[in-house]
Design a protein around this nucleic acid. Structure first.
Lengths: 346, 346
DNA sequence: GTGAAAGCGCTAACAT
DNA sequence: ATGTTAGCGCTTTCAC
């Protein structure tokens, strides 16, 4: 470690800057934080020295007393093509406020997610932003007691200690299914995930649960309740649960399928293509998330767009206000919009 | 300190643990780091207290004296579907060695990348791993002087102060083009990016430059040099440079196109589909990276697979050995393999 | 084998 | 408006 320093000479600390500028370390610190009570003369002297010496504050040292100007962003997994937009939106707002964003990737396992959140707190990040965590409300509340916490993709409007930012998944699903109904489809099934929790109050739960609610509501409103059927399938290959192929095997096949996510929808559209099942003539498909692949002309998958960038921006704003002291919870719901393409028919 | 009641909220520090276990803070620190000279009795006492109190070492405080057991992973951008595998591979190795990985996303801008690397160093991360950075060798060397540095996707085998891990892009491109030639195609063009630097020694440069070299070599070996043509296009919509549509406009159209990346290849395959140009009958296409979208049956894009997970693993191993003191550079080259699908013909 | 004590580079009272 | 100074929670000699 000492040898490392020898390369460029002594490490430049706040003291080096103070000496160079002929002021106290407190003065430098104040300039750094734009604190009250610094004359323009002092400020410019300090800034000049900082520039000259190439000084950079140690985040580690800062973390011991004050803030680190960094926030941790936890992604459930990297494979989901919907996440980049969320990240971009969040970074946009955080960046403008001079916060650095460090991302942790959870590998879709709750234990890894927790370990990462712990690490972010160990690093004294100023806040933690979770995207679609596989964690229960209780666990989240535990973290919220120790750090500013905002969660995207977890419906819990009654949470008192952290904020949630979501797309209105019930409305999005309803819109998708209504569109299918309007196109004349009647036998409409849905693909979803296996339930993980059963005791959530109405209006709370994971996103796929909300989408199931929207699906069922739309079916009921159209008097199609008896045709409704939800397939609880594994998320992707390698996951537990029955495979998507089951759905295509059913005979008679449904006329249309609403998939809780593009992950399923893309798999299904490819499966159909491989087996000569025409989309949408033999089977109409609507997905969710409007990922880049859905938008490829060759794919043409109708999908519900949930404004990823906006989710990220709103969550970042919530985070900033929470860091600045807000304690009353905020629960934001954004309006999704169906993007219609070939796969859902006319 | 005495009267203060330990309610939930009192931060558990190394001192709390020391008091609880009836030992010194130094002892606790030693147990934490598996340092030499701790009796089993002491160790178990300390471990018990740590467990009981739920103690977690502050990374921030650690960063001021020793290591943080965290490494920074910089991604050029999140949109590239090739990156998740690299990240997974790297995390696998780092995780096994008890290092946490924090990811920074560069938004494809050199300045943002630099700012993120700086932040990682400010946080006293133990090393920085760069994936496909948009930075010059000189800049990289500058960072390498201050922190252990490993770079994926940047060819610079002569670098003395940092390690590089790459797929053999020249070989990969050659393989792809040879396969097209073997299928009978002669008029084979290539899409690449606009040059950013002109004075790199042979064997060095950005990945697309290496792939151009492989393309030209394969064409020359087949006596097709006079048919070779490289289209320097923008990376994707929103970037600078001429659009990919130019290529389809050319008449007579080439028989086949080797794209430096699936980003171009997917755009091209969709463009062709939209305009009724049949793939591969009218135009054969080969991409690079073998991203998930390329593997979708409906797309069927031949693409060069560069073993993303292996790149990540090897880079992580290099990082670990560098952190443990290695100073001689390592430059690793992995063998890519063409994955053949419909888009390149028979 | 174990502990006392000196920092690491900052921030935030509190003085001046 | 500026400076002095006491820590923050660790690691690391250096005594014992």
């Amino acid at each position: 470690m000492t040898e490392k320093i020898r390369e460029t000479g002594e490490r430049v600390t706040i003291r080096t800057v103070a000496e160079d500028a002929g002021v106290s370390t407190a003065a430098v610190s104040k300039v750094l934080r734009n604190a009250y009570g610094v004359s323009d003369t002092l400020r410019s002297k300090v800034l000049t020295s900082i520039e000259k010496l190439g000084y950079r504050p140690s985040t580690a040292a800062r973390g011991m007393r004050g803030k680190t100007y960094s926030i941790g962003l936890l992604l459930t997994e990297m494979e989901n093509a919907f996440l980049p937009k969320v990240v971009r939106g969040a970074k946009e707002v955080f960046g403008a406020a001079n916060y650095q964003v460090m991302i942790g990737v959870g590998e879709a396992q709750a234990s890894i997610e927790q370990s990462l959140i712990d690490s972010m707190m160990d690093m004294r990040m100023d806040g933690v932003l979770l995207v679609a965590p596989r964690l229960t409300g209780t666990v989240l509340a535990g973290y919220a007691a120790k750090t500013p916490l905002v969660v995207i993709g977890h419906h819990e409007p009654s949470a008192e200690t952290f904020d949630t930012v979501n797309s209105d998944d019930v409305a999005g699903a309803r819109e998708a299914v209504c569109a299918l109904i309007a196109s004349g489809y009647r036998d409409i099934h849905m693909t979803s995930l296996s339930q993980r929790r059963f005791d959530m109050p109405a209006g709370e739960g994971e996103v796929f649960t909300m989408r199931e609610t929207g699906y069922l509501a739309a079916m009921q409103e159209a008097g199609l309740s008896d045709r409704a059927r939800i397939w609880r399938l594994r998320e992707r290959e390698g996951c537990e649960g029955p495979p998507l192929t089951d759905l295509l095997k059913v005979g008679p096949r449904p006329e249309a399928v609403f998939c809780w996510s593009d992950i399923h929808a893309l798999e299904l559209i490819n499966l159909a293509w491989s087996r000569g099942v025409r989309v949408p003539e033999d089977l109409a498909i609507v997905g969710y998330d409007d990922t880049p692949a859905a938008g490829m002309p060759i794919v043409g998958l109708s999908s519900v767009n949930q404004q990823g960038a906006d989710l990220g921006r709103q969550a970042a704003r919530a985070m900033l206000s929470r860091i600045e002291g807000r304690t009353t919870p905020e629960h934001i719901l954004l309006e999704p919009a169906l993007k219609t393409r070939r796969s859902s028919g006319s």
